[in-house]
Design a protein around this nucleic acid. Sequence first.
DNA 1: CTTTATGGATAGTGATGCTATCCGCTCGGT
DNA 2: ACCGAGCGGATAGCATCACTATCCATAAAG
Lengths: 213, 213
Amino acid sequence: MRIAELSRRTGVPIPTIKYYLREGLVPAGERTGPNQAQYGEAHVRRIRLARALVEVGGLSIASAREALTLMFSGGLSELDTLGKAQYAMTPAREPVGEHERDEAWDDAVAEVDELVAKRGWQVKENNPARRTLAEALATLRRLGQDDYFALLDSYAEAADRLAAEEVEAVARRGDLDSVVEAVVVWTAVGDAVLASLRRLAQEAASTRLLGDA
Amino acid sequence: MRIAELSRRTGVPIPTIKYYLREGLVPAGERTGPNQAQYGEAHVRRIRLARALVEVGGLSIASAREALTLMFSGGLSELDTLGKAQYAMTPAREPVGEHERDEAWDDAVAEVDELVAKRGWQVKENNPARRTLAEALATLRRLGQDDYFALLDSYAEAADRLAAEEVEAVARRGDLDSVVEAVVVWTAVGDAVLASLRRLAQEAASTRLLGDA
DNA sequence: CTTTATGGATAGTGATGCTATCCGCTCGGT
DNA sequence: ACCGAGCGGATAGCATCACTATCCATAAAG
């Protein structure tokens, strides 16, 4: 298969595929001459994955490359691969600035630690989701939306239940490659699914409460 | 209060505040001369809100403006305001392209309709979350992650429960302004909270299942 | 009465995610 | 063997976005 068919099969324009090749999202094809290469099903799949991460998951090209590279690198333990791939999906945030290091921030960090402890979650100290969560909670507090914290437990409970089901479903797969791929896809696309469902449920709940004139 | 203090109070640089003024994220101050204006607490609050939507919620400047404008415009019914504000938070996606209008897409749309019906959710046809969800499901199907659909119900159940609690908590507030503000903030920031919690819970669940060597 | 700050206008910047063009080469049909 | 379309690879260009920087006439502060 050459690039035109790759493009046809995936719906991704040729210049974009070339760009992905340059950026390492997709590995080079098998060379058959100075200016010829062969691509296979693996490439089709890889391009579809890349698109899913970028378009649905909203990852940057750099994050997508990292996740995809880890996914197909091997050599690590199952758990390490999973962890690294997951960390790559949380977009890098710059270090917490001066202005943010206030009381709300300290409270938020403490609250995250407390929540993790209370749930008995074994989570590495450097999981980027800790930071993201702390930032969100600090923002809420700074905006005076304190009653949010009453709901935090419900959120955690929901996350816990979903994660357990997800991990169980993923683990049922046979080979490591398939597991890692599923984790990457589900993590990224699952965010979008959950967010959308929450929006739909919110509209439904509002309508229920306020009538539907 | 003049712009320097506004900047000091919010931690947002002066040029950025000027930019937000230009873009209509923040209303103009009360003019006291040809090149002087007074700002108040409302401006401080508005800037903090804008930042929350943009930084934590990941909204574009245009979406944030729309949400903020609706929030403080009034004149609509409670439900309309809520709906519009929520719709403004779902980033605009371009219309579904040719290549995407395939079997997976049709299935996904049908699946969304079915889910909404089964849950008894009263959701407008033009709620953008429908599209986002359909896209995510279609992507999953195209990638062969079909077993995802077994979990869809759990996701919907979780979303339902959370939305009910959220709406109930928000509705307890007194005035409409406060309600709308809470909806906007919670919708945007809540996504980040949920996503982070899911990441943490996923790591915990993986560790539980695979051991923690 | 000078220094600093202000509001407003305009232009510039850096990052990002593609697109477009060009080149020498090769494949496929005749 | 020939020729035109297609190829891969390299380089440059483009549009968007979210700021930043500069400039100006004027106003406040010391």
